[in-house]
Amino acid sequence: MSVLVVLEQRGGKWNRTSFEALAAGQKIGQALATPVTAAVLGSNIDSLATEAAAFDIQKVFAIDDAALEQYTPDGYAAALEQLIQASTPKVVVFPHTYQVRDYAPKLATRFRKSLVSDVVDLKTVSGGLSYVRQLFQGKLNADIPAEGDLQFVSIQAGAFRAAEPASATNPIEQFRVKLDPSAIRSKPEAPYREAQRSVDLGAAPVIVSVGRGIKEKENLPVVEALANALGAELAASRPICDNGWLPMERQVGSSGQTVSPKVYFAVGISGAIQHLVGMKGSKTVVAINKDENAPIFETADYGIVGDLFEVVPALVEEIQKTKA
């Protein structure tokens, strides 16, 4: 019995959330009193396996195979299926990345299990372990008891502090898999980035970011006035950019820019995790939202619960008064 943490790399570089998943895996291991192992998949991954072996774990499984050079859901699911059958872990832990979203449900299905996705916390309720995950984009939490002989769990980015290497040299087991390249159905092309951005929000000291609470494009001047009063850059949540109300390059979040200004104003933004990962590093966060339970208030230092169409103009007036 063990906890198996699947670490993620692309092109020889770690996805850093792997080590947050590892930290969660270590906590699960403690709760269940079982050792923790880790797996690395890819092609030519010796140095990554060595790095992984420095963490406080029992051992690393290195699955090194030419068919895993590029990520495919068929390849990854087949390789991990074989490892799970051979090493019989009780819990398999992943970072909740886009890649994991793509293959972990498939892998779990092979064992007729459902992945407990996007876990934010662990709880010990009356002696038993429960996984805590969010519903309604963070508005509610749910406790799911850790039950069954084999569990699959993915960990939300930012929910656990990343594990630090313990400068150990734990054993590395080269785990050989049988992969039939003709059974890999998807043919991936090289990843790319869209054209260079002309706006670098990363350098802005103050950002006013607007979300769906603004309701219509015609209302944007309300927040533009605030940005002007503060000398701030304007940014937005994804739906605003999807609608074409602001250019894509002003989107903040997991699929947009990552920013860390001195002050970030979130106006009419609910605070979904994909938005939060892009702005959590801000020194001060101000949230203006009419819903007192909006998840953004968990990240905010200052908040005003109210209608942005009343609050923002009042704020602009106050700022102008102060500056005068």
Binding site: L135, G138, L140, N141, I144, E298, D301, G303, V305, A314
Partner: peptide, 26 residues
């Protein structure tokens, strides 16, 4: 999977909320 309990998350951070009239909060 069974959801044993669902609930409003408890806020761990002390967000300073300004309430009252918009003008005053601002």
């Amino acid at each position: 999977l069974v959801m044993e309990r669902i609930y409003l998350p408890t806020r761990s951070k002390k967000t300073q909320i300004f309430s009252g009239e918009p003008k005053q909060a601002a």
